[in-house]
Design a protein around this nucleic acid. Structure first.
Length: 902
RNA sequence: GGGGGCAUAGCUCAGUUGGUUAGAGCGCACGCUUCACAUGCGUGAGGUCACAGGUUCAAGUCCUGUUGUCCCCACCA
């Protein structure tokens, strides 16, 4: 069946709208649509910003620089909610500073993410039936770069959709030549200072990724496992020593059994020799303080090549190290019949074999901490391996001192404690990775045995003159280059003008989860290489969680795609929703309800703007030429307060508070009150008054748009374009400044009395059941007659009143009145004005009957003992609650009736 | 074992350096076709600020302890 001809009305409307815009040369008020639709303009506005170079930060000596380096997302990455929040915060800060007149640089970039990317490519190769070994290094790298070209750009496009105002002309990739140069320089300097060394240590080995990992790259989880108790025979005796282990397969690498020197149970064994089962090896019993006699059997098998503690024990007792596991996690040659087996298969067989030999004493269930590769989640093996390390202690010290001395401040500052905790307990950093995608370590080995560490590829050996130099195969940990990000991006180690102008940077925005990976390392690197802290403020935010508070993750499938949210609600709504109800450093839950609330608010601004603009029919006078009315001064005063408070909050990075304050000001003060208050002037027929009101409306609106621009850049730019007069772009506009002359504190305070009065009348009506539309007559005992008279039309309109009568104290307003003491005076409203007394009495009587009936019905149940005793508790409780409610209603109705009958 | 967070309205959370009557959004109740907006307007109900002490003229806020809960780090095999 042929599809019916569909006509997309929205599309046609949009098309017509675009045509009329073009015809009018861009914007008269008539064109604004009745509802806010971000699709109409977000893309267009971003393109215009790009075209006009609005994000470019120039090295203007007349300006103060403000620099933010974007934490570079992985090239393999897709924008997720965590990014969305991180980038939004940075964009808000940078737009704010830009508007304040700083030369605001937000430098974007992407990270090569050595392990993550290589992991993905290796997987892809596996699917294609090949491997990196088969391709060889060169071809593999060619593929990796192709991958980068293909996928590295998607995240950039996604950042643009979010509205990020980064200086794209400075986009940097961590493997750009300038970064590689910085990496080599940094490596060489540390090596020359003796802070980089190569050595055989216990490191974390991922058998899946086949590379070493740093301690930070290992995630520990509580895994269920077993405690296997094995008996090792003592040489020349019938006795055995029982040890307990969680990793039976490592027993093949045991080179001793250790006991505590004070443990009397084992004292006589120390110095004796054990026959290591399943092997023909003999191993000694040694005494070492490390052993806790109270744990396990009090005797510990020592496998120096496969356990960090055992490694230490091994060093103390001069024990041999025997590696029993290969790089892929399978057992290797020294393992005899077990060699070639996967570690878990070997475990099974070893346990069986021990059982056969009668050496398996018992198996105890035991949960313990197991390290997993943060990338592939395979169980990490501690193995002894020759790797490159950075000596951390000398680097950590100044990094701690810098934060102690407040050279760098954490926001919120409690994260400084976490930072200290990390640095104070830090161990040497394993920086070599057995990977190809990354910065290759700038070390060459000569046949003569010489190791050459150089910034540029050497051609001859300085010692023997030989030319057969082999470069180190390993790459550096990705974080080694990330650590240099604040300055490698600006051309360091060259003394570039950019470096001189923009460095050190001002704010670093990131999540608390990468303090150990990144913040810490940038700190000590910055101090070490540039002798300056790399940033003044570290703004830490929390995680974006799902509606139930769970971490958003791929495996749970509970992640919400920010791009879908943008598609549905627009980037502005997403941004604002991520900023509301959020305290710095705290985790936050993402809910669609929040986005809706943000969208509703933006729609509100949209319509308020539309209202203002559709009334513009004349030249808008500058504020100075307007005879300001009390309501005008009130809103201008409120605006000044809003400016002062948001600016303060923004400077403290209290973005959530700033957003809340602005929302409140715009919605309550401006929309709900001022716009309504201004209507009599707009519609009253006096052109002078109208001009004045319009002037104030436009003035306040313009300021509102500017204040909100950092949060919701697209819609504010769009509306700004509709404002009368020549203004340019809001992105380049000056951020509003608090103006004491416009604060009108006293007058504003007095004016609040009018608002209070209007609220009192409304409440009164609601209380007695008077429809809002019913006009009532107000009687007032007051000393503010003049103020009230000036605002009479507004009061009548907003309170739904017909007249205001001033009476003197003690004077009667009528026989029956409802009264209320307001700030501005004592208010009386004749009851007859509020309600048709007879009609109201009849209504109330009827209502009372109904309520009494309900009470009787409830009593009928509740007085029935069987009901109370046998019915489900919930029903009984519900019934009681119902009765309470009706009793309450009865009281109110009776009170009201008394009032009417008096 | 060490470090840190959180506990405030039915739900999700704000709450500046201690200072009037503890706020918002959503939800709830009642009422509104008010000429920018129902993605709206008005009026409400709802809180022993986890618990127990302490400091203070004054504590949701500071201190001590208790309970509950979450996170990070750590080599008990």
């Amino acid at each position: 069946m042929p599809a019916p001809l569909m006509v997309d009305n929205a599309k046609i409307m949009r098309y017509n709208y675009e045509c009329s815009r073009l015809a009018n040369g861009g914007g008269s008020m008539k064109e604004m649509q009745t509802t806010y639709d971000p699709k109409d303009f977000e893309e267009r506005i971003y393109a215009q910003w790009m075209e006009e170079n609005c994000f470019r930060a120039e090295m203007d000596p007349a300006k103060i620089p403000f620099t933010v380096m974007m934490p570079p997302p992985n090239i393999t990455g897709q924008l997720h909610m965590g990014h969305a929040m991180d980038e939004t915060m940075q964009d808000i800060v940078i737009r704010f500073k830009r508007m304040q007149g700083y030369s605001a640089l937000w430098l974007p970039g992407t990270d090569h993410a050595s392990l993550a990317t290589e992991h993905k490519i290796v997987e892809k190769l596996r699917e294609e039936g090949t491997s990196k070994e088969e391709l060889g290094r060169e071809e593999f790298l060619r593929r990796a770069w192709a991958w980068k070209e293909q996928y590295g750009g998607t995240i950039v496009g996604q950042l643009k959709k979010l509205g990020c105002s980064c200086d794209w002309s400075r986009l940097t990739f961590t493997m750009d030549e300038k970064c590689s140069k910085a990496v080599r320089e940094a490596f060489c300097r540390l090596y020359e200072k003796g802070l980089i060394y190569r050595g055989s240590r216990i490191i974390n080995w991922c058998p899946d990724c086949k590379t070493a990992l740093s301690d930070e790259e290992v995630e520990h989880t509580e895994d269920a496992g077993n405690f296997w108790h094995f008996a090792y025979p003592v040489e020349g005796s019938d006795e055995k020593i029982v040890i307990a282990t969680t990793r039976p397969e490592t027993m093949l690498g045991d080179t001793a059994v250790a006991v505590n020197p004070a443990d009397e149970r084992y004292a006589r064994f120390v110095g004796k020799t054990l026959l290591l089962p399943l092997t023909d090896r003999k191993i000694p019993v040694v005494a070492d303080e490390y052993v806790d006699p109270a744990f396990g059997t009090g005797a510990v098998k020592i496998t120096p090549a496969h356990d960090p503690n055992d490694f230490e024990v091994g060093l103390r007792h001069n024990l041999p190290m025997i590696r029993v596991m290969g790089d892929d996690g399978s057992m290797n040659e020294p393992c005899g019949e077990f060699s070639g087996l996967d570690r878990y298969e070997a475990r099974k067989r070893i346990v069986n074999k021990m059982k056969e030999l009668g050496l398996l004493v018992k198996i105890e269930p035991h949960t313990h901490n197991v390290g997993h590769c943060h990338r592939c989640h395979a169980v990490v093996e501690p193995v002894v391996s020759k790797q490159w390390f950075v000596k951390m202690a000398p680097l950590a010290k100044p990094a701690i001192a810098a934060v102690m001395k407040n050279k760098t401040k954490f926001v919120p500052d409690r994260f400084a404690k976490i930072y200290f905790n990390w640095l104070e307990n830090i161990r040497d950093w394993c920086i070599s990775r057995q990977l190809w995608w990354g910065h290759r370590i700038p070390v060459w080995y000569c046949d003569c045995g010489e190791t050459i560490v150089a910034r540029e590829t050497p051609t001859v050996c300085p010692v023997c003159g030989g030319t057969n130099l082999r470069q180190e195969e390993d790459c550096l940990d990705t974080w080694f280059s990330s650590a240099l990000w604040p300055f490698s991006t600006l051309g360091w180690p060259e003394k570039t003008p950019e470096f001189n102008y923009f460095y050190p940077t001002d704010a670093l925005v990131t999540g608390y989860d990468i303090i150990p990976f990144w913040v810490m390392r940038m700190m000590f690197s910055g101090i070490e290489y540039t002798e300056k802290v790399p940033f003044r403020d570290v703004l830490i935010h929390g995680l974006v969680r799902d509606e139930q508070g769970r971490k958003m993750s791929k495996s749970l499938g509970n992640g919400i795609d920010p791009l879908e949210v943008i598609e549905k609600y627009g980037a502005d709504s997403l941004r604002l929703s991520l900023m509301t109800g959020v305290a710095p450093g705290n985790d936050t839950r993402f809910t669609e309800t929040k986005v809706e609330a943000a969208r509703n608010f933006i729609n509100k601004i949209w319509n308020a703007s539309r209202f203002v603009l559709m009334n513009v029919d004349c030249e808008i006078p500058p504020l100075g030429e307007i005879r300001l009315q009390p309501a005008d001064r009130w809103i201008i005063s409120r605006l000044q307060t809003a400016i002062r408070e948001t600016t303060l909050s923004m400077q403290k990075y209290d973005l959530g508070i700033a957003a809340d304050k602005l929302t409140d000001f715009v919605w309550s003060d401006f929309c709900d009150w001022y716009i309504e208050l201004s209507k009599p002037a707009l519609y009253g027929g006096d052109p002078e008054k109208k001009r004045g009101a319009l002037g104030v409306l436009v003035f306040v609106l313009e300021n509102i748009l500017k204040l909100l621009h950092p949060f919701i850049p697209f819609v504010t730019e769009e509306i700004y374009g509709y404002l009368p007069g020549e203004r340019g772009r809001i992105i380049a506009a000056e951020y509003p400044r608090y103006n004491t002359k416009l604060s009108y504190k006293k007058e504003a305070k007095t004016f609040e009395g009018i608002i209070d009065l209007i609220k009192a009348v409304r409440a009164m009506k609601t209380e007695v059941g008077c429809p809002p539309s019913r006009k009532v007559r107000l009687f007032l005992v007051t000393e503010q007659k003049r103020l009230l008279s000036v605002n009479k039309q507004s009061i009548l309109r907003l309170a739904g009143a017909s007249e205001i009568d001033f009476i003197e104290k003690g004077e009667e307003a009528g026989e029956k009145t409802v009264s209320h003491v307001c700030e501005i005076g004592h208010l009386f409203v004749p009851l007859g004005e509020l309600v048709d007394i007879e009609k109201e009495k009849a209504r109330l009587e009827k209502e009372l009957d109904r309520v009494m009936g309900e009470i009787a019905r409830a009593d009928g149940k509740l007085l029935n003992k069987n009901f109370v005793a046998k019915a489900p508790q919930k029903l009984v409780d519900d019934e009681r609650a119902k009765k309470e409610k009706y009793l309450d209603m009865k009281g109110k109705i009776e009170k009201q009736l008394r009032l009417l009958n008096d």
